[in-house]
Design a protein around this nucleic acid. Structure first.
Lengths: 110, 110
DNA sequence: AAGCTTTATCGTAATATTACAATATAAAAT
DNA sequence: ATTTTATATTGTAATATTACGATAAAGCTT
């Protein structure tokens, strides 16, 4: 096999899984952190920051974009990428909810 | 290729990526949500909750365990799985930090 | 002890991911 | 118009993931 049985799970479960999967590579975490560091949409220079070849970086950017985590706007010669805060907020809320549920759980064990 | 160049990234970047990757499958999100729902360490019954064969579920549990997201304790015949709240807290904090950095950013664009 | 229950492991097929060289595209600069 | 610069796409090899049948392991039950 190799293909996930996504149709058996809820929309929400797939949604979170797709976001998590997109962040499931150190290069893509590094891209996100670089976008945060420069504090503005970045046009280019991501390739120079990463220890990977240009096509590989382009591929990682595409995956982040497909998941909706970053947005890219063409600006003349270059492309302006930035993080979609709504998506980050979605993840933040998701993990906050889980954490609170665990904390409030009476029947703690382990 | 197919193997990630993990050695080129920071410990922290790899750490977050490993956690995100482990959550990057709807079945594993469903497992986490089931563990939350039953509100106690679960012994068995995860297989019955998921639309996947027992070896597949066992494999997904192993991945969550390897990433440190769940812990499993043998209890006689069965195994008692539960979520490691420290790890969830780590993810929560990570995304909260990112979100705040974006929010506080002066140079918003996009 | 023999059988039952629960979970893990092995083996393997189908598919996906990662990485990059080569090439393409498209705007900017000369 | 040609060259340069920036990014994307194509093709492809190496590796990883997903799923599951078959089987193993290990504790209960009788």
């Amino acid at each position: 096999m190799g293909a996930s049985k996504t149709e058996h799970f809820t929309y929400r479960q797939n949604e979170i899984a797709i976001l998590a999967k997109a962040l499931g590579h150190p290069a893509r975490i590094a891209i996100i952190e670089h976008l945060l560091k420069v504090n503005t949409c970045i046009c280019g220079d991501i390739v120079n920051e990463l220890p990977l070849a240009q096509p590989t970086v382009s591929q990682h950017l595409k995956e982040l974009k497909n998941a909706g985590i970053i947005k890219g706007e063409i600006e003349g010669n270059t492309i302006c990428y930035c993080i979609d805060e709504k998506i980050i907020n979605k993840l933040q809320t998701y993990f906050t909810d889980i954490f609170e549920k665990i904390e409030n759980s009476k029947k703690k064990c382990c």
